[in-house]
Structures are given as structure tokens and as C-alpha cells.
């Protein structure tokens, strides 16, 4: 029986390779709620890619199950609403960008009359230069192929997304496009799982993050709730006055409040605060002191810490 509000449910999922000698997943349980974006992180070999394989129905689990909206993943009705961005797509060299998307449009069983418009819309969304739409993929750069990889995700307007390192190989503009696409999907209530080594990306885009190690979910962190415990506050301001003026001001205000400035330069500082209230007070005082604050954000160093901790030291 699926929990109410759960869109993706992974129950007691186990998968091993080499006749059971390598345990890739060991009784993984995971629930992703409808409209939620879940980040998947963990060291290499933790089982993230295997979990993705099982989520896509391309790997046959030894035990356990994966359900999307209460249905097994290999149902065609589930595939119809699932979008996938592979980590390293291997394209047919002879295809053109336009043909590639037409192929996926046909595979998605979308209305053939919408093909031309959909393909154009997808290619435009990922900001691929129209001059290359008709060029063979063999002539595309890696960044262009990654954009095309993202464009195929848009075909068929999926409701469930599985993104495997979506920003890999992209330039800053490409990364911005990925963010834009994820946000637009988010606004339309799409459920997503993002597997990434880019922790800042995970923090930026995800509601929760699951940390995998040795085939087990070691911890699930909530990223969008209020920050209650000690954390690092990142402050950035416009440096308009004499050199270092604002920096000194921030330092002295922080000192007067009894908090530590961990790192600072002319236009930003990282301050260790005891909790959300202290952070809010510091921001208020810094603004009141006339520092033109551009950005004030809680740094969740916990993600890096997850990697630093010993295996099994954190309970789920």
C-alpha cells in the first residue's frame, strides 16, 4: 500500500552483481513525494547509478520494488510520464539534432501533428543555436550534446524526472539552462530525482537529499526547511566605499554579537552562527549599519560533512 502523497516509492530494494559478490543496493527504502525534488548524493560506488537503473526499470532488482504513482516502473503508462537525462549519452553520429528529437517524439507516442512545433520548442528552450539543428551530431561539441540530451527530456512533457548528472560537461550558460528547466518543471508540480556530485546544485534545486553509501540510504536531509542549528551564513555586499570598509564593519558587528567570521574578503564573508535567529539578527544589524547586502544565504555545509563522516556513523 503506497503512502498518501508519495509519487516514487522504493521499497526494500536490493541489487547485487557478479552472482551476489558485489552488493550494489542493500534494502533501500525511499519515498519521494509528489512535486518534490530529491537529490541523490554519495561517494563513487555508493549505488546511485544502480538505483537509477532500477528506477528506470532497466535493471532487474534481486528483491524489493519500485513504484511510480502506485504502478510498477515497467508499465508503459509510467514510462509515458517519465523523463530521463542520462549521465553520458552516446548519440548516433549520423543523426541531426532535429532528427534526434523527432525520434524521441515518436518514441514518446506524442501526437504526430505536434512534432515540428514540439521539437522546435525543445531546441529553443535549451538555447541550441538554430544553425546547428540540421547538422550531424558527429560535429556537435560536448556541451551542445549535453543540451540536446536535456532537450530530449522536454519531449513528451514528463511528470516524473530522473536526472543523472544533468550539468556534467556544460558551460555556465548551459548550467543556467538546466536550472531554468528544473525550475519550470518544479513550478508545474513535477516530481524529480537528481543524481549529482555538484553539491551546490543539489542544495540549490532540491527539497531533500538522500545520502547513499555502500548501497544503503544513510541519511535523508531536509534542505528547504528553516535552519535551526549552527551553520555558516554567507553574506555578500556591493563594495562601494573605501577598500575593505564594509568587510571591517561586518567583522566588528559579528564580533560584538559573539559570532566567528570564518572567512572574509572585500565583498563577502562566511560567518558561523548558532542558529536561524542569530543569523537574522546579524543580517538586520549589518543592513542597519549601511552595508549594501546583496545576498545572505545559509550555507549547508552538512552535505560535505556527510561525505567526511565514517560509514555507518549516521543513522537513517
Amino acid at each position: 500500500m503506497q503512502q498518501p502523497g508519495v509519487c516514487i516509492e522504493v521499497r526494500d530494494l536490493s541489487k547485487s552483481y557478479k552472482n551476489g559478490r558485489v552488493q550494489a543496493l542493500d534494502s533501500v527504502n525511499l519515498a519521494v513525494y509528489a512535486g518534490e525534488v530529491l537529490g541523490l548524493i554519495g561517494p563513487n560506488g555508493a549505488g546511485k547509478s544502480t538505483l537509477f537503473g532500477c528506477l528506470l526499470g532497466l535493471l532487474r532488482p534481486d528483491a524489493g520494488s519500485v513504484h511510480f504513482d502506485g504502478k510498477p516502473v515497467d508499465y508503459l503508462s509510467v514510462r509515458r510520464i517519465t523523463g530521463y537525462v542520462p549521465e553520458r549519452p552516446d548519440f548516433e553520429q549520423w543523426m541531426t539534432g532535429r532528427l534526434f528529437l523527432e525520434y524521441h517524439h515518436m518514441l514518446s507516442r506524442c501526437d504526430p501533428s505536434t512534432m515540428a512545433a514540439t521539437v522546435e520548442e525543445c531546441l529553443t528552450t535549451v538555447e541550441l543555436d538554430p544553425a546547428v539543428w540540421g547538422r550531424r551530431l558527429g560535429t556537435y561539441s560536448r556541451g551542445m550534446l549535453q543540451r540536446l540530451n536535456l532537450a530530449q527530456l522536454l519531449v513528451g512533457k514528463p511528470r516524473i524526472l530522473l536526472l543523472d548528472e544533468p550539468t556534467l560537461g556544460l558551460d555556465p550558460v548551459g548550467v543556467k539552462i538546466v536550472r531554468k528547466v528544473i525550475r519550470s518543471f518544479r513550478q508545474s508540480g513535477v516530481t524529480a530525482i537528481i543524481n549529482s556530485h555538484q553539491l551546490d546544485e543539489i542544495e540549490r534545486e532540491c527539497d531533500r537529499v538522500a545520502f547513499l553509501r555502500q548501497g544503503k540510504v544513510e541519511k535523508i536531509e531536509n534542505l528547504k526547511g528553516s535552519v535551526s542549528g549552527p551553520h555558516v551564513l554567507f553574506l555578500r555586499w556591493t563594495e562601494t566605499g573605501s577598500e575593505g570598509q564594509h568587510s571591517s564593519l561586518v567583522r566588528s558587528l559579528a564580533q560584538s554579537m559573539g559570532v566567528t567570521v570564518q572567512e572574509a574578503n572585500r565583498s563577502w564573508a562566511r560567518v558561523g552562527v548558532a542558529g536561524g535567529e542569530q543569523a537574522a539578527r546579524l543580517i538586520r544589524e549589518v543592513v542597519a549599519a549601511g552595508v549594501p547586502v546583496e545576498e545572505a544565504v545559509a550555507e549547508r555545509a552538512r552535505l560535505e560533512k556527510l561525505f567526511e563522516s565514517e560509514p555507518g556513523s549516521q543513522g537513517q
Partner: peptide
Amino acid sequence: STSRSAYSGECLPLIFSRP
């Protein structure tokens, strides 16, 4: 159309993520 694994070069057919 396939996805090449970063680790061993095996391919995962992207088309099977489609209906």
C-alpha cells in the same frame, strides 16, 4: 540511442526509458 557509463563503457539504451 544509448547512454555510456563513465566507468566501464557499457551502454544503457536511452530509448527504453520511453514507452
